[in-house]
Design a protein around this nucleic acid. Sequence first.
DNA 1: TTGAGTTAATCAAACGTTTGTTTGATATTT
DNA 2: AAATATCAAACAAACGTTTGATTAACTCAA
Lengths: 210, 210
Amino acid sequence: MAVDKKAHIMNHAIALFADRGFEGTSIRELAHEANVNVAMVNYYFGSKEKLVEAIIDEKAAYMKDRLEELEANERLTEIEKIDRLIEDYVTRILAGASFHKFLYKELMDTKREDIQEFLTNSFARNAKSVASIIEKGIQKKIFKAVDPALTVASIIGSISHVMMSKRYCNKLLQKPETNEPYTDDEFRIRLINHIQNMMHSHLLAVSDKS
Amino acid sequence: MAVDKKAHIMNHAIALFADRGFEGTSIRELAHEANVNVAMVNYYFGSKEKLVEAIIDEKAAYMKDRLEELEANERLTEIEKIDRLIEDYVTRILAGASFHKFLYKELMDTKREDIQEFLTNSFARNAKSVASIIEKGIQKKIFKAVDPALTVASIIGSISHVMMSKRYCNKLLQKPETNEPYTDDEFRIRLINHIQNMMHSHLLAVSDKS
DNA sequence: TTGAGTTAATCAAACGTTTGTTTGATATTT
DNA sequence: AAATATCAAACAAACGTTTGATTAACTCAA
C-alpha cells in the first residue's frame, strides 16, 4: 500500500520537476496534482530534498547495468555495440522523457551539491563505458582515431538536444505544435538512424552503407 | 550611470541564474553578489521577471545576425560555412558559458511560457538557418543525403552537452576538478576539431583529411 | 468471529522562514 | 530646488514543514 503511494507521488514529482524545475515546483502543487494531502510528501519521504534523492536513487542503478553488460559482450563487434547502444539510449530516453529532462536540470544546478556530485559521477561513469568501447575499436584499427570522450558527448548531446522541450523539437522538425515527438515511433526511428549513420561515417574508416 | 549599474546587475544575474536557476536565485543573494541594495533590482527592472526578460532581450538580436550573414555569403562553399559556423558557435558559447547554460535552463522550463515561446523561436530560427546551408549542400550533391534538422541538433547538442557542468565536463575528459575547460583554449580547439571532423565525415561524400 | 488495542495513514490547520516587493526617509547628482 | 539614486525596514504572500486530531487497517487473545 505504502509502496504504491510512494511510487505514485514520485511519478507525479518527476513530471512536475521536469517541467517546472525543483524550486519551481511547490509541495502544494505536487500534492494537488497527485491528489494527496500536502503532509503526505513529508510523511513518506521526510523532505522535498529527500524526495528528489529517492527519485534519483531508484533509477540510478538500472542505468549502468545494461551498459556494463554491453561493454563486456564478446560476441559483438565494436560498431555493433555502438549501434545497439544508440538504439538503447534513444529508446530509453524517449520513454522516460520527463525523467531525463529532470536529470539534465539537476545536473546543471550547482545549488544542491551532493546531488550534483552523485549525478555527475553516474553520468560520467556511463560515458566512460561508451568511451572504452570506442577506444577498443580504435586500438583494433576498426575505428578512425577520433576523440572518444567528445564522440560520446556528441551521441548523448544529439539526443538530449531534441529532448530540451517538445515545443522546440517540433519547431526544429517543422512539425505542428500538436505533434508528440517523444511518443512517436517514427521520430524514434528517425533519430536512431541519424545518429547511427553519423557514427558510422565518423568512426568507420570505410563508409558502410546499410 | 544608470546603464552601467543595470548592466552590472544583469551580468551578476546571468552568472547566478546559470548556476542556481531562476527560482533558485533570490534577489537578496543577487544584491549581495553584485554589491547593491535589494531594492535596486526592482528600482531598475521593475521585477525579477522583467530582469530575466531584459537579459534575454539584450542578447537575442546579436545571435541571428552573424548567422544570416553567413548563410547569404556567396564566396564560401557549404562545408566552409559549416566549418566557420562550428568555430563560431563553440567560441561564442564557451565565451559566454554561464549565459548559455542559463538560456538552456530557461528553454527547458515551461513555467514562464512567454519566455519559453520567445526563446524557442529564437533557437529554432537559428537552427533553420544552419539547416538551410546543409540542404543547399545536399542539393548541390556536395553533401550526402543526411537529415538536416537532426544534423543541426548534433552540432549544437555536442557543444551544449559539455557545457552542462564544469564538473561533468572534467570527469568526461578525465581532467582534475581544478581544470577550467571553458576558458582553456586547448579545449576550445579540441572541441572545434572534433565537431568539424565529425561533420566532414558525416556530410562529405569523400572523406576529406585536412 | 469478535472486538479491544495497536499501528499506519490521512487530514486541516498552523508554524516559522524566506520570498519578491514596497515604502518612506536619506543621500547624491544635476 | 528638482530629480535621481540609495538604503534599512517593513509587507504580504508563498514556501517547506510540523502538529495534533481523526480515520482506516491490521493484530491477536477470547
